[in-house]
Design a protein around this nucleic acid. Structure first.
Length: 421
RNA sequence: GUGAGCAUAGUGUAAUAGUUCGCACGUCACCCUGUGAAGGUGAAGGAACUGGUGCAAAUCCAGUUGUUUACCCCA
């Protein structure tokens, strides 16, 4: 049996990789406009970083990390999310001391989680993530959200729903959780088995249960918004106002929570609603984190960011029927008749490439007819044909593949001829 | 981690417990020995792995692996 690719991973092959490059290009361009700079952190970190940063009660840390010991018995973990490494780097490189705050960073990086693969979920996936560290200004929350939305729109995605919520500070979250349990517990027998399990595990999830969504307790359930203190309420109102000022449409979703421990205040998700699209409607998720930097032994610093999965984005683009521009241009394909011509092709081909023209030839000793076929399939703009006749005259036949017109030109004029086309 | 479906040439598919597993596209050759997108003829190339039941297994059963999908959770 041949060796197979590890479960939940995929090769990005030619034909597909061009799409990735395009998406990455759009991401970089957005970041340039919004003035975020690229950071590249290692693919693996001390396990401790994620245990402390992400939170040891989260699913990610409890069961999804690729953790291994190196030869010196250090416990290392393949990056399961993007924010903690950035926060670590911020602290380690003392970026809190930089004159310009917040420090605005982005990354394009592989993420590893040991989980069961499904629709739009992989063991290695790739995220475009953006983080702004060192500012409590609600304007930066709005900026981050508008960047995410702008990115999707630039790629032509429609049917987007931007869900937004505030978790307030940690206190409000704990109080809300208790209130939810008290609300549902007396009548939990009326709910489905999933909800019974959710009651202790994650009572908030009961609210978007598909089975019990009609139950009267659903509508009367306590909302997190009612548990926010004055600062949190005002902060959230300000974020929403700024978003409105930028014409970014959002939907308040009081049931929105995120699975990572470090989130406080603003949280948001960009959802893709399109029928035929699977259960993973979340294209992007993010929010504000206030305790993370301190948790990692840095000064009290607040940050906000988001991550979005490229694989899911590609699925969404496909579902929408959006074709990404992929340009692979072959300026000239060489077709040679006979051995002498084939030998002469080597230097001509090289000359074109040196001159900045993309050029290709046949390496399988195929017949001229088959060479033409290859040129056609590669969508070469021109074919340069060389045989004994041309060699004798010091000329070469150049054929425009679109118009099928061909002419014989001086061999020495080939580069110039093609450059002018 | 739980449940369900699927696994046939490079790709997409068909069939059925019983000779040599059919078709399409692709590949290659020839018709056409210096010209691509059309056509004709021909060729190469295939049952995920392991075990079981049967005279006989691609087909039935079990396990393994992979894959799709719904949960959980997330990007």
């Amino acid at each position: 049996m041949a060796i197979q690719i590890p479960r939940g991973t995929q090769d990005i092959l030619p034909g597909q990789s061009e799409k990735w490059q395009y998406i990455e290009g759009v991401a970089r361009e957005m970041c340039r406009l919004f003035q975020y700079e690229e950071i590249r952190t290692p693919m693996f970190e001390s396990t401790e970083l994620f245990v402390r940063g992400v939170g040891d009660s989260t699913d990610i840390v409890q069961k999804e990390m690729y953790t291994f010991a190196d030869k010196s018995d250090r416990s290392l973990t393949l990056r399961p999310e993007g924010t903690a490494p950035v926060a670590r780097s911020y602290v380690e490189n003392k970026m809190f001391g930089l004159v310009n705050q917040p420090v605005k960073l982005f990354y394009l990086a592989p993420i590893f989680r040991y989980e069961r693969p499904g629709a739009g979920r992989y063991r290695q996936h790739h995220q475009f993530g953006v983080e702004a560290l060192g500012s409590d200004d609600p304007a930066i929350d709005a900026e981050i959200i508008s960047l995410a939305v702008g990115f999707f729109e630039k790629l032509g995605l429609k049917n987007l729903r931007v869900a937004i919520n505030s978790l307030g500070d940690k206190e409000s979250r704990v109080m809300h959780r208790t209130a939810l349990i008290n609300h549902f517990k007396p009548r939990i027998d009326e709910f489905c088995s999933d909800c019974k399990r959710r009651l202790e595990q994650n009572p908030l999830r009961i609210l978007d249960c598909k089975v019990d969504h009609g139950h009267e307790l659903m509508t009367t359930a306590p909302s997190i918004i009612d548990f926010l203190n004055e600062y949190s309420t005002n902060y959230f109102a300000q974020v929403q106002q700024y978003l409105q000022d930028m014409d970014v449409t959002t939907v308040l979703d009081p049931t929105l929570v995120r699975g990572l421990d470090y989130y406080n205040h603003t949280v948001f998700e960009v959802m893709f609603d399109s029928k035929g699209f699977g259960a993973n409607a979340t294209l992007s998720g993010g929010g504000r984190y206030t305790g993370l930097i301190e948790q990692l032994d840095g000064p009290a610093t607040s940050g906000i960011g988001f991550g979005l999965g490229i694989e899911r984005l590609l699925l969404a683009l496909e579902a929408e029927g959006i074709e990404l521009p992929t340009q692979k241009v072959v300026d000239c394909y060489f077709v040679s008749f006979g051995e002498a011509a084939e030998q002469r092709t080597v230097s001509l081909l090289h000359a074109l490439r040196v001159a900045g023209l993309s050029a290709e030839r046949d390496y399988q000793g195929r017949k001229p007819k088959a060479q033409l076929k290859s040129a056609d399939r590669l969508e070469a703009r021109y074919v340069a044909m060389l045989g004994d006749d041309e060699l004798a005259e010091g000329k070469i036949t150049v054929k425009n593949m679109k118009t099928s017109k061909q002419e014989k030109i001086e061999m020495t004029a080939l580069v110039q001829f093609l450059q002018n086309k």
